[in-house]
């Protein structure tokens, strides 16, 4: 790649990464809005999450007496690791150099890094809730992560590559093919996304004081900018999963060259896909009730089963003699 093109590619990668943090609150706002409408409420404005973040950022930050330095480091690590993971998922354009830093497995690893520190931060203050949240989070993730990796392996084995870009280009080049394995992988990834982002059948994002909380229990002691970073990271994570599902399974529309037109079209396409996914999420959360904690393993076992069937149906049905 010539130097000039390389430079512009890095610039676009940087812009795309910034777009992730910029768009993440919007997606949450959209989901909440749709949900409110479904419940016959008017709901908060679409941009409310931005206002919330801003409020948290300018507020005073409190740290418990019993907290160690890790408590203050964790929000930065969680935010940065999640962001870096997101930045490697193609949002508007393919062939960006940043995607080569990390393939899908590294992406899963970065999310695991963020989760590791999130759980540690929950245990740091030494309250009962923090430990509870950390323990449950590790239970959920220890079942969700293999399902996610297996779903991703299905895609990787089809494209013979673990790079997200190659998976998407391979999919685009093949045109419209009905792959049973993709269907299963999509199902698995949807379930995993619900579990990992703390959405409704597994965790309730709207709760603050409930014995069943998971994600919120780990953040109880955070305030001010630390809380803002943690919340923002969670929003980026939701966006990441949304883009992953939207762009990997339905890659059509993503920009393949670095012209303003292609990039603009890519942005429009991904926004449309995300709006649809967000609405679907809102409807699902509206229809489904939260499960008790020990039903969650069954939910995730279904994800594992789907991912496993995806792999098997790839091996059995899609590879010839």
């Amino acid at each position: 790649m010539p130097d000039g093109l390389m430079l512009s590619a890095w610039l676009i990668a940087l812009l795309q990464a910034l777009l992730y943090v910029a768009l993440a609150p919007l997606l949450i706002g959209w989901v909440r809005k749709v949900k409110a409408r479904l419940q016959n409420r008017r709901g908060a404005p679409l941009l409310q999450p931005y206002a919330d973040l801003r409020k948290l950022l300018i507020k005073e930050t409190r740290v418990p007496h019993t907290a160690s330095p890790l408590f203050r480091m964790a929000p930065y690590i969680v935010f940065v690791a999640t962001w870096l993971a997101a930045a490697t998922v193609p949002l508007v354009a393919l062939d960006l150099p940043i995607a080569r830093i990390a393939d899908i497995i590294v992406l899963v690893g970065l999310l695991a890094l963020a989760r590791f520190f999130l759980a540690l931060a929950g245990m740091d203050v030494g309250t009962a809730f923090g430990g509870m949240g950390a323990s449950r989070e590790m239970l959920i993730s220890s079942l969700a992560e293999p399902a996610m990796l297996m779903a991703v392996f299905t895609l990787a084995m089809t494209a013979h590559s673990t790079s997200l870009e190659s998976v998407m280009s391979h999919h685009l080049a093949d045109g419209f093919v009905l792959r049973p394995s993709y269907l299963f992988a999509l199902g698995a990834l949807l379930l995993v996304a619900l579990a990992e982002c703390g959405r409704i059948p597994v965790d309730n994002p709207a709760t603050h004081l409930e014995l069943t909380m998971i994600h919120e229990a780990m953040l109880l002691e955070y305030s001010g900018r630390h809380l803002a970073l943690m919340e923002w990271a969670a929003q980026v994570k939701l966006l990441l999963y949304g883009v992953l599902i939207a762009n990997v399974f339905f890659p059509w529309g993503v920009g393949r060259e670095f012209t303003p037109l292609a990039l603009g079209l890519g942005l429009l396409a991904v926004l449309a896909k995300l709006a649809l996914l967000g609405a679907a999420l809102a409807i699902a959360e509206h229809v489904v009730a939260k499960m008790r904690l020990f039903r969650a393993p069954a939910f995730l076992n279904l994800a594992l089963l789907l991912a496993l069937l995806g792999l098997l149906s790839h091996v059995i049905l899609e590879i010839g003699a």
């Binding site: 009905l178 792959r179 049973p180 269907l183 789907l306 149906s313 049905l317 899609e318």
Partner: peptide
């Protein structure tokens, strides 16, 4: 093939 995979599921 897709339908067969679903039957298996």
């Amino acid at each position: 093939l897709l339908l067969a995979a679903l039957v298996l599921f």
